[in-house]
Design a protein around this nucleic acid. Structure first.
Lengths: 183, 183
DNA sequence: GACAACATGTTATATTTTGTTATAATTTGT
DNA sequence: ACAAATTATAACAAAATATAACATGTTGTC
């Protein structure tokens, strides 16, 4: 069996069961415990699991810790926050799409997923699928304001009252990074 | 079983039951009482429980209802919640102005102050001074939706996009209590 | 074939966990 | 208040596990 194969099967096995023991895996694949150790060490470095004494457990669901915005250091409101998930299971929080989008380039290739909170409904959505209102008449968090919405319709309705432009993800990224360069 | 697993199961067991005994856990996991002692000491250091003689108890006494909306029992979002302060220092939380306003009469004379969160800015304001948008096209929490704003201008702008009526506190109370009586 | 890069196993040496024993502190019954 | 019973803590030894270093084997390339 290929090492790659074995490591994939370890991941599958871990996801099925809640945890795995090294002795268990060593028998299952008929390799030494040292080899399993090295497998787990590699998988941990890649962020696929967490090594504990005697075995491994799944990575804890990315905790929304009370950390400061990685751009402006303010405390994010759940209503406006943006989360960047990175390789290795780490996560970075931004206070609002303005900070989150303009900071995307900092982490570049490391980014595995970006989530943002729908401003009205409060649920978490993929940043790529969201619509953004840029520069409305109201400042919610940082300036220029960028507000995220799950449905484009909501963004348009918001725009009707508070003005600004409705952009998709790509356009919003472009905009926020242009603004950065002016500074 | 992995030590990590055992400690997690101790936490689960403690949350199910209201308290745990060391002798009990020692038998359940077939380890010595000393091991359970050390588990509990570690979990206590991490803030997951409180050690007492012979066992452990949860850090937060099981007051499940303390966080729920006093009307509909849902968990309030900070963005929409309303707080009723009562004589004697007690407080009641509502998930949104709809629940909060229609539940005012329950506490009547006991109420000393009512606070509500501005939907856009997230700051806390006196409910009497707020403006409310009634029955917009979007449902934020309960139905019919009532959304609170610090500035009447914000409420009007929101109405421009999402329709509904803009009312002051007195009008909003009347409205929500009328709705109640229809049920 | 010579060589480098990698994977694996073995051995030796830390480090951590666990159980046992002895002793201290607390609770309980009278 | 006192003694007995229970529980907590400390110290040590044994077991389990982790890490490092080295040896062996495999694979692919030139």
């Amino acid at each position: 069996m290929l090492p790659t194969n074995r490591r994939q099967q370890i991941r599958d096995y871990l996801n099925e069961h809640g945890a795995v023991q090294i002795s268990e895996l060593s028998e299952k694949f008929t390799v030494s415990e040292m080899t399993i150790h090295r497998d787990l060490a590699q998988l941990e470095a890649e962020g696929h699991l967490r090594k504990v004494r005697g075995g491994a457990v799944p990575v804890t669901p990315p905790l929304a810790s009370a950390e400061a915005c990685f751009m402006c250091q303010s405390t994010p409101r759940s209503q406006t926050q943006m989360t960047l998930h990175l390789t290795g299971g780490a996560a970075q929080r931004a206070c609002c799409p303005h900070c989150g989008l303009s900071g995307l380039h900092i982490f570049g290739e490391q980014i595995t997923a970006v989530f943002v909170t729908d401003f009205l409904r409060g649920n978490t959505i993929s940043a790529q699928a969201a619509s953004y209102v840029i520069n409305p008449d109201i400042t919610i968090c940082c300036k220029p304001s960028i507000i995220a919405f799950q449905k484009r319709e909501d963004a348009v309705r918001f725009q009707r009252g508070f003005n600004g432009d409705v952009l998709n993800f790509t356009e919003a990224v472009q905009y926020s990074q242009q603004v950065m360069h002016l500074h």
